[in-house]
Simulated scan of single mutants.
Amino acid sequence: MEIVHFGHSCLLVDTGSARVLFDPGTLSSGFERVTGLDAILVTHEHADHLDPDRLPALREGNPGAALFAPFDLAGARRAEPGAVLALGGTSVRVVDAPHEVIHPAVPLPANVGYLVDDGAFYHPGDSLTVPGQRVDVLGLPTAAPWMKLSDAADFLAAVGPRKAVPIHQAVLADPAVHYRVLTGTAPDGVEVVVLPSGEGLAL
């Protein structure tokens, strides 16, 4: 499996049988040039996870890509928790993963997680929901208005993946500080892998 990080929560996952793009949002860049996609999966409707201005061009460049989201989105199929999406030769289970609380006064959108090929990769969106099964590679939320750094470390320990790729880091002036803490507190056998922006890495 090859993963490319386009910043923040946007990741391209190439399983060898499907190319899937997650959360092409406003704080990410470079995903506009991606072609050959089988699917575009959106975890929730916040702009940092879905840029409505750049989505049409992305879809035009990938006419065969299915679009899934857990909310009403033009041209998208509804991503319902518990559903299993068949994408090329890859299966993706939609995980019931509610958005974390930002503040009691702030309404929360519907959020889902996506579990690829029975745990080969897990993208939780803005949730710290543990999927309840083995995860090989985890997209690890690193910083957000709804979390402390210790929350990220605890989530990493609870999931216990083979490798974790920090995501949702664009809100930080210097994410390296968070990366050091996450690396230093990772359980034995868990490797935190910071992906260079826009470069693919086999994991």
Rank of each mutant, 00 (worst) to 15 (best):
V106W: 00
T185F: 00
V165D: 08
D151M: 01
A186D: 14
H5Q: 03
H123V: 08
H49V: 09
P166Q: 08
P141T: 12
P124G: 04
V177F: 09
P161E: 15
D126M: 01
L12C: 10
A153I: 05
T15D: 13
G75C: 06
G61A: 15
A47D: 14
H103A: 15
A170Y: 02
F121N: 06
R134A: 14
A76H: 09
A152Y: 00
L37T: 06
A153M: 06
V181G: 03
D38I: 11
E2T: 14
R19Y: 10
P52N: 11
R19W: 04
A157H: 01
L140Y: 11
A97P: 10
T26Q: 13
A39L: 06
V190G: 14
G61H: 11
G119I: 01
A66C: 04
L67P: 11
E32I: 03
A173N: 15
A76Q: 02
G82Y: 01
P56C: 02
D23Q: 05
D96P: 05
I167C: 08
G64H: 08
V194Q: 07
D136Y: 10
A66V: 12
V177N: 07
A105D: 15
E191N: 05
F68I: 04
A152N: 08
V34D: 11
I40H: 13
E100M: 13
F6S: 07
Q133I: 05
V20K: 01
L156G: 08
E191F: 11
T183E: 13
S91P: 07
F121P: 11
G198T: 09
L67M: 02
A83G: 04
D23N: 14
N111I: 08
V130E: 12
D38Q: 14
A110T: 11
V42K: 05
G30F: 05
V190S: 14
E100I: 08
A157R: 15
S91I: 00
A76V: 00
R77C: 04
S17H: 15
R162S: 12
V130N: 01
A152V: 01
L149V: 12
G113N: 02
H46F: 14
L21S: 04
E2R: 15
F31M: 00
P187F: 02
E199A: 15
G30A: 13
E199D: 14
A143D: 06
P70M: 12
Y179C: 02
T185K: 13
P141C: 09
G125T: 04
G89K: 00
V193R: 13
G198Q: 05
Y179D: 09
A69N: 04
V181L: 14
L67W: 10
A86I: 03
V20E: 05
L115T: 02
P104A: 11
V130S: 04
L128Q: 00
V159P: 00
